[in-house]
Each structure stands twice: as C-alpha cells, then as structure tokens.
C-alpha cells in the first residue's frame, strides 16, 4: 500500500529486485490533508488483507504525527521509517543538514516537480488566489530538488517551479536508493516470515 507520490518508484524498485509484490497506491494529494491519511490507509490495508497474506505500508509518517503509527501498530503492518518521503529519499540526517543550513528550504522530489502545477499551485489555491503566494512562501529562501532521476525535462520543470516561487533552485541528486533500502527492510521482514508472500492470495 504505497503513497501515490512514490508508488512509481516502489514499482520500479520491486521490479529491478524481482520482489513478488503488487503495489497499490493511495492518491498523492492526500498529503494536503494529512489528517485523512491514517484512516484511508486503515481502510485500504483492511481491504487488501482479505486478498494478500502480507501487506506493508509505503508511507512515512507524512504529517500524521503518529496517527499512522497507531494504525500500523493496531493492524500489525510495517511502514517506511522517517517523517516523510524527503527523509526516505535523502536520509534523515542529510535532510536535517539541509534544513539546518537554511530553514527556509522548500523541498521538491521528482513527483512534486512533475506535478507542481496540480499538487502545489492548484492545491494551495494559487491559481485562484495568486496573492496568497506571499503568505505561503515569503519566508522561504531556496528550493531544493531532491532528485531521483533528474532528466532534462524534469530540470526544466524544476526551474519553472522555482521561478514561480521566486526562489533559487538547488539540485541535490539523491536517487531512489534510500527508498530501496527502506523497502528492502520491509521485504526482508516478509522473507523472515515463512509462508508469507506479498503476491499470494491469503489461503482459505
């Protein structure tokens, strides 16, 4: 059960590692209402459990401030470590360094670069109320793009996003190895559980 913002990466990592998993995604824009994430994950995991022997949650805390942990503990499913996907991709300490360097850092990932207009501009109402840009971003000093696969078109999109915010862009290529490492920890947990298979339907 993956966050839609990283589901594509999860699918790619599973394929290149030949992990027997199906990836189901929840809408990425749930991140703009993090109070709803835990409930949606609970519903989805409950549904998937009827069909899969093992379910894991490819969400970090994602602004639920412990609510997702409570659900995961109750349902006994693991989730990705970290406060959010920035931690997962870059590593918590590296992200902390970036924020310590400049607290006014607005962080993007490939997903956010690609969907900037929908996930940021529209969701924050900046298309309807452009005057709010100052309210949201006046204390930010730079955009840091934690790039997974920094292609030419994504570079262009990232530059446009930074220009829209009126901030300088810094590109920090982190790849998706951090996510792969965290996912491997989940998969290793499964393989230690004899008989558990993410793809096999639950017996009976």
């Amino acid at each position: 059960m993956a966050c839609g913002a990283i589901a594509g990466h999860v699918t790619g990592i599973a394929a290149r590692n030949d992990w027997p998993v199906d990836v189901r995604a929840l809408p990425p824009l749930l991140h703009n209402r993090p109070d709803r994430i835990a409930g949606r994950v609970e519903d989805a995991v409950t549904e998937l459990r009827a069909r899969y022997a093992t379910v894991a949650v490819a969400f970090a805390d994602c602004g639920t401030y412990g609510a997702l942990d409570e659900v995961c503990a109750r349902l006994r499913v693991p989730r990705l470590r970290g406060a959010h996907c920035y931690d997962v991709f870059a590593g918590a300490s590296r992200l902390a360094e970036l924020l310590a360097q400049e607290p006014g850092t607005y962080v993007l990932t490939d997903f956010l670069v690609r969907s900037f207009r929908r996930a940021v501009v529209t969701e924050l109402g900046l298309d309807r109320f452009p005057q709010l840009r100052e309210d949201y971003f006046r204390h930010y000093r730079r955009v840091v793009w934690l790039a997974q696969y920094p292609t030419g078109p994504l570079h262009t999109a990232a530059r446009r996003a930074a220009e829209f915010l009126g901030l300088p862009l810094e590109v920090v290529t982190v790849g998706d190895q951090g996510l792969e490492r965290e996912l491997r920890a989940l998969v290793t947990g499964w393989s230690a559980d004899p008989g558990a298979s993410a793809r096999s339907p639950r017996p009976g």
Partner: peptide, 13 residues
C-alpha cells in the same frame, strides 16, 4: 473538509 487552507487564508486576509 469543506474548506482547505486557501479558503482559510483568503477569509483571514
């Protein structure tokens, strides 16, 4: 859930 942050901010303004 009927309003989101932009609606709150614009009303606050």
């Amino acid at each position: 859930g009927d309003f989101f942050v932009p609606e709150m901010l614009i009303a606050g303004r």
